[in-house]
Design a protein around this nucleic acid. Sequence first.
DNA 1: TTGAATTTTCAAAATATTTTGAAAGGAATG
DNA 2: CATTCCTTTCAAAATATTTTGAAAATTCAA
Lengths: 166, 166
Amino acid sequence: MTFDEAKDKFIHTWGTLASQWGINRSMAQLHALLLIAPESLATEDIMEQLQISRGNASMNLRDLMDWGLIYKQLKPGERREFFYAEKDIWKVARQVAKERRRREITPVVEVLNELKAIPPDTPEAQEFLRVIAGLGNVVGFADSTLNAVIKAEENWLMGQFLKVFR
Amino acid sequence: MTFDEAKDKFIHTWGTLASQWGINRSMAQLHALLLIAPESLATEDIMEQLQISRGNASMNLRDLMDWGLIYKQLKPGERREFFYAEKDIWKVARQVAKERRRREITPVVEVLNELKAIPPDTPEAQEFLRVIAGLGNVVGFADSTLNAVIKAEENWLMGQFLKVFR
DNA sequence: TTGAATTTTCAAAATATTTTGAAAGGAATG
DNA sequence: CATTCCTTTCAAAATATTTTGAAAATTCAA
């Protein structure tokens, strides 16, 4: 496999994968492209390489910046904006974990807490409360795991964890 | 909040959440409904409670069975099929972890292995290989984490892990 | 200021996904 | 068997998401 083939395959694969994760294809491909780019790229470069429209590029670049996965660079003497990706993959993972925790875990915890306040008068209500309590535990685990990723500034604890389960 | 309100809110919330996870609303709501049902339900019950069509119910029930999250029950003297959910939430989590690992992690590992075989002749290729190697580590971590969930028949190790990071 | 270069916005178009419902398929009953 | 009851399938319709592209906004240099 040549480098160009590998590059295409990488960008394509990342895009396909991301859609299973609720991230749209353009955003994922954009991220993939910037991840493997040795230099920062201008919007034009991106539009051309991925064959997407200006609007699409603009919106997804912004979303990626919101996620903290890419940065804007201003080159002296250049009017255009350039973009480059965060290359420390663990930092990327931390960033994603942090965002997903905020967007997905936190709201569920709130709803579960609300729901566990109903009176346990009927069998249905009791079953319901059991399920809610169980889900609370699982969500707690997910939360802890994401926190582990987020807080692992050093790789030591992570390494310990991996050793135990491998 | 009354039980009925709580039930509706739970089903609705679960459905909304799931769509961020690439699972469709009907499937998630169906699962939520069965999770909190104290008795197994017939297709008709489900159609009525969730206001969905017969075809929709049929397809999503099958998908949930494929995921190992619900079971079919045949009641003596009844011609209709009944469905009930796996109520052990940790088992549900394990099942989901197992499926996602199979569907998402395994293919990525294969592609990454393919890609890391390119010759490191240019700076671009070298950067690419660095990124691929880094992603390999992150994916390895995700894999280990899912394995931890999958293999944790007992809660002991899980508890240890949580203690360390909490 | 003005105007050229660049980015952002957003309604409409394109695409993708989900849902429906009716027809076809199966299985149990008499 | 034929009939009834129930489930599955799948093309078409409905919905939701993504993408486009041109107009509006912004930025910077002169």
